[in-house]
Nucleic acid binder design. Structure first.
Lengths: 207, 207
DNA sequence: GCGCTGCCTTGACACTGTCAAGCCCGCAGC
DNA sequence: GCTGCGGGCTTGACAGTGTCAAGGCAGCGC
């Protein structure tokens, strides 16, 4: 049951949206385990079985919430970018820090978006939001890539920031597997970008 | 597994180990959602409440399983490395491919190891196994790093391979957020390593 | 022999997701 | 106007879950 026009779209989207909002808040306040169909229903003021009429079970609700969260995620990155120095490296770093920031302050949402084994990544709304978020990162990478390295560079940066985030459970001060603390992300990113063959390479590195 | 000696270590570790093995198999066969205290207990041939005497609830069992899985994970990487060309880049790439390989073929275990919000990453057995796994990757990175870039490079590679894996849900052929398919990991890794200031840099690049 | 200490079972509880049945209200047709 | 209908939602039930309390039972020290 997605967005194709049902008879009375308004009433329909009303409780549907309430359920998404309720679940969103549960995840934001209580972490990944706080989301429950029944809790979301109660908070939205409907009966415990109402969600089944709007979503394909728990996984469907999680997917819808993840789509909304992905939009906020993209907004967080954009906001950070807008507040940063116009220098390309600073811009991309700001985007990545928005990424880290969102993961740290919304661990529950982040988990549903990226680590929940049940959501449907092919869901149109989720895919569109993910595409939007990916676009922010892609745009940030563009100044560093030539045409034929663009995809690889985007993949490298996206993987790196995601891995950096996920491996420390959303907490940048979380020690790595060997007990050491990771260097700041800027250092890691510079290691990649400082050496990428680029039309706009940041201030010369050691070579 | 906790190493301090209880009165009858043998009997104790017997069912304890059975529970870990049962849970391990459940995850391997049925994915992340297949693990249940009761199912593990049934498969181990004990009552549904027995696990509570050996682990701190479900999270404790998950942690113990994750520790065992982490050991197998390290073994997978070592095995790949051993079968690879002695060239440093080939060695590190093989390690990373072991990483990807394990994630793809054991998605349930991978989820418990890295994406389960409930396990205790400070658990001694888990931490030791993670340290061991991290050591494999660290050793693979060593030829490319100078003393003062080592930590950053390890972090970069570990983050990159983890992110690359996680973002495609364990399936290397999973399209990225924008529907495109990611370049092979070797390309991405080369983007980082191909230019890292290194005592043993692979075939010269543009600088 | 006795008591004790751990391992484990049994039984119960609240909570979960999901299904089937039915209520209720707005709408189309007459 | 009334009737029939269909979708949104509720109610009620079910199996399955994690966790707790109580107790049985075996092995051990005394």
């Amino acid at each position: 049951m997605t967005d194709e026009m049902p008879p009375r779209p308004e009433a329909r989207t009303d409780t549907r949206q309430s359920l998404i909002d309720a679940g969103y808040d549960l995840l934001r306040e209580g972490g990944a385990d706080a989301l429950t169909l029944r809790r979301a229903a109660a908070r939205a003021g409907v009966s415990h079985a109402a969600p089944a009429h709007h979503f394909n079970g728990l996984a469907g609700l999680q997917t819808a919430i993840a789509a909304r969260a992905m939009n906020d995620f993209a907004d967080t990155m954009k906001r950070r970018r807008a507040a940063a120095d116009p220098d390309p490296f600073a811009q991309l770093l700001a985007i990545c820090e928005g990424y880290l920031d969102f993961a740290r302050s919304h661990a529950g949402l982040f988990h549903v978006m990226f680590q929940c084994p049940d959501i449907d990544p092919m869901d149109p709304a989720f895919a569109a939001a993910a595409h939007e978020a990916y676009g922010v990162l892609r745009a940030g990478c563009a100044p560093f890539a030539s045409a034929h390295t663009a995809l690889a560079l985007e993949t490298a940066v996206w993987s790196m920031v995601h891995g950096y985030t996920a491996l420390r459970h959303g907490d940048p001060d979380f020690p790595a597997a060997d007990g050491q603390f990771a260097p700041p992300f800027a250092t890691v990113l510079a290691l990649l970008l400082g050496n990428v063959p680029s039309p706009l390479a940041p201030p010369g590195s050691e070579c």
